[in-house]
Amino acid sequence: MKDVVFTYVKNGPLVEPAQEEDLPRQMLGLLNWYKGYIKHKNAKEYIYAEVRYEHHFKHYWVQIPLSELFQLFNLRDLDKSIISCYVLMKKREMRIRNIHDVGFIDPHIVNSYVLEHHPADVEDDLWRFIRKQQQKSDILFPYHFGFHWILMVIKVQTSSVLVHDSLNMDPAIWGDMRKMMQKVWRRFVDTKVGEFKKELHFKMAVRTTGDIQPPGTNLSRYYIYKHTDSLDGRLGEAGELGVQVVAPEYMPTWGGAATAETESRRLTPGGREGGSGVCTENGEFRRQPSS
C-alpha cells in the first residue's frame, strides 16, 4: 500500500496533528492564527502585505496565498510571495538591530517573469534599488527564474556580484538578468563620481557541503534563507532555515491587508484595532485617521 501524500486543501490543516507539538514557537503562533482566520465565514484564499515607500522605496502589495503557508510548514517549493515577506522581515530586523550596511532587492518586484514581460519596469526598479542603497556594503538580491532561486550579493564599492547557487547551474540560463544588471550598473556609474568599474564582475561563490542542494529537490528557496542569515554572522542564525519569515512577531498583520513594518503597533484578525488601521473579518483593511 502506498503512503498517502499530505496535501493542501482549502481551510484544511497546515501540518499533521501529531506534528503540532513539535513546531517552533513562532510557527506554532502562525498556525494558531491560521486556525482562527479560516473560521471566519468570509475568509479569503489569500492575504495581503502592504509595502509603503518607507519600507522599500515604492508602494506596492504582496499577495500571499494561504496554500503557501502549507508549503512553508512542510518545507516544500515556495512562491515569490514568501521570499518577498522574508526580505521585508529582514529589513525590519536589521533596523531594530542597528545593522545599516546591508540592503535588499525584493524578488516580488524584480524577477524573471517581470523581466520578460516588463523589462522597462525592471530597469527602473533595479536603478532605484541600487541608487537608494549605494552606501550599503552588500545588496542581497534573491532572483527567481524557472523553478530555481539564486542569491546574488551586489558589492557596490568593488563593482562585483557574488552568486550563491545551490545547484551550480550554468549562468547562461539567467543571462538576461545579468545583461540587465550590467545595463543598470552602467547607468548608475555614469551618474556617480567614484572609482566604480564600468562593468560588474560576477563570481560564483565557493560551495561547501552544506550549500549543495540534493538532486531532484525544489529546496533552493531555503538555501536563500541560509545564505542570507549566515552573511558575515550579521543577520542572525540560519536556525530554522528561514521558516520564521511569517512569524507573528515579525509580520503581525496577517489578517488581510498588512503593513510590512508596524513596530510595536499591531493589526490582528477579527476586526480588532491596531495602530494604523483595522483588519476586518473578511480580510479587508481599513485605515484609521491619525490621532
Rank of each mutant, 00 (worst) to 15 (best):
L88A: 09
A238H: 05
Y250V: 00
G255N: 04
R76D: 07
P107G: 09
E68L: 14
M204C: 05
G274V: 00
V87I: 12
P142D: 15
V62K: 08
V9F: 15
P107Y: 10
K183M: 02
L30V: 01
V278Y: 04
V122Y: 03
H227S: 06
R265Q: 07
W61C: 07
W174H: 10
E261N: 15
R207L: 08
G194S: 14
S160D: 01
F202P: 09
A205E: 11
Q213P: 00
R128Q: 04
D106I: 11
A120P: 02
Y250P: 10
T191V: 09
G175T: 01
F141R: 06
H59G: 10
I99K: 05
N218R: 02
M181A: 12
N98H: 07
Y53G: 01
I105F: 10
L72H: 07
A205W: 02
V122H: 01
D190I: 03
L219Q: 13
R131L: 07
V5P: 15
L200F: 13
V206I: 04
P107E: 08
G277M: 08
H59I: 08
P65L: 09
K44Q: 15
P65T: 12
G255Y: 09
K183Q: 08
H227K: 08
P171S: 03
Y113V: 08
K90D: 03
E16R: 10
M94A: 07
D138T: 14
I109G: 01
T262R: 14
Y223R: 00
M181G: 04
N98Q: 07
V246Y: 08
I82T: 14
C85N: 09
F147G: 11
G274F: 10
E237G: 06
D190V: 02
Q135Y: 06
M94Q: 06
L31S: 00
N111T: 14
T191K: 13
Y46V: 03
E273M: 04
Y48V: 00
G255V: 13
G256W: 02
Q135A: 10
T268D: 12
E116G: 02
H144D: 15
E261H: 06
T208P: 05
A260L: 01
E21R: 11
E16A: 01
Y48M: 03
F141W: 12
T262V: 06
D125W: 14
T209I: 03
L30S: 01
I150V: 13
V156E: 06
P65N: 09
